[in-house]
């Protein structure tokens, strides 16, 4: 879903409808409407059936004790919600996910922009380097997780190279494991940010940069005063994408640490799926899903609103 999220290209408002058309044209219009609806129906059916209805069902299941196979679910009121507020596992998962999101968002964007500036000039080497930073995107989180776990795990490549007495607890000590998870996540996803920032940098007009140079601006000043303000929309896109991506982190953790040690690296989504399928508490899992959905929607609205406000401030 990258790239598009903050586009403002919602269809234009209905045009003013002209004077009432004569009778003959009504029939034509009706045919138009019919064709219209036939065209729009398939995706509407899919989205309604597999996104909108499921959201409603998630809300319903979150008020039940459904275990997934004994039917039907029993309604238990807000019990799942009161439970998750006090559940240390949920609290830890929420904390960890927010931590990963906060650090990851900053790191991915700083690295993404930094490397984009580094590789901005169109040279052969830079073209190769761009390919190099982006490849994790096509490999996928599960496989990257396994790869890094065989590199950083106990008896992994780095451990073996350091020797038994200097081994580092990358995945066995909770604090190290959390740091490792964050680093691997950033490693595997900042390439997308590099590519997006490179695209953004290309929209900065050359004559503006020339003008800055003539005015005697240092590269540092050019970056802060000229490039960064012009990149503001790109920054928003990148921030929203990384935040949404990291709030749902799961696959990489599953393959890298399987939630360990001591459950310390279980993210929010990890916990949802564990509650649901390992503990057969799908109702409880649904309640956690609802909380996450609401949170993501709120965060997205806040970020886009903040962007709009800062744009208005710039305009004013």
């Amino acid at each position: 879903m990258p790239a598009s999220s903050t586009a403002t290209a919602v269809p234009t408002a209905p045009r003013t409808v002209g004077p009432r058309p004569p009778l003959g044209r009504t029939r034509a219009r009706r045919r138009e409407t019919a064709a219209d609806i036939a065209m729009m129906a398939p995706p509407l059916i899919l989205v309604a059936g597999l996104i909108i209805v499921p959201i409603g069902i998630a809300v319903y299941l979150s008020f039940t004790d459904w275990n997934g196979f004994t039917s039907p679910p029993h309604t238990i009121g807000f019990r799942n919600y009161t439970r998750l507020i006090h559940d240390p596992a949920v609290k830890h998962a929420a904390f960890l996910t927010l931590l990963i999101t906060a650090i990851g968002t900053i790191a991915c964007n700083v690295l993404g922009l930094g490397v984009a500036l580094l590789l901005n000039r169109n040279t052969r080497i830079n073209a190769i380097l761009r390919v190099l930073v982006f490849y994790p995107y096509v490999v996928g989180a599960v496989i990257l997780g396994f790869l890094w776990s065989s590199i950083l795990g106990t008896n992994g490549a780095v451990d073996a190279a350091l020797g038994a007495h200097h081994s580092l607890p990358f995945l066995s000590d909770p604090k190290w494991a959390i740091a490792t998870v964050v680093c691997v996540i950033v490693w595997s996803s900042f390439g997308v940010n590099v590519v997006l920032y490179l695209a953004g940098l290309q929209t900065v007009p050359d004559n503006v940069l020339e003008a800055a140079k003539i005015d005697g601006a240092s590269p540092w000043q050019t970056f802060w005063r000229v490039k960064l303000p012009m990149l503001a929309p790109t920054v928003t896109v990148n921030v929203v994408l990384v935040v949404i991506g990291l709030l749902r982190v799961y696959e990489l953790i599953l393959a890298l640490t399987a939630g360990g040690p001591a459950g310390e690296t279980q993210s929010f989504v990890y916990n949802i799926l564990t509650s649901s399928f390992d503990n057969t508490q799908l109702g409880y899992g649904a309640a956690q899903s609802v909380v996450l959905m609401v949170f993501i929607v709120v965060v997205t609205i806040v970020i886009t609103a903040a962007r709009r406000r800062s744009e208005q401030a710039v305009a004013a």
Binding site: V47, I51, I272, S289
Partner: peptide, 20 residues
Amino acid sequence: VLLAGLFIPGQTLVIPVIYV
């Protein structure tokens, strides 16, 4: 309506989608 799913992570829909 079609854009509604833009910000909903697929993983959180797994349980109700299984139901559907």
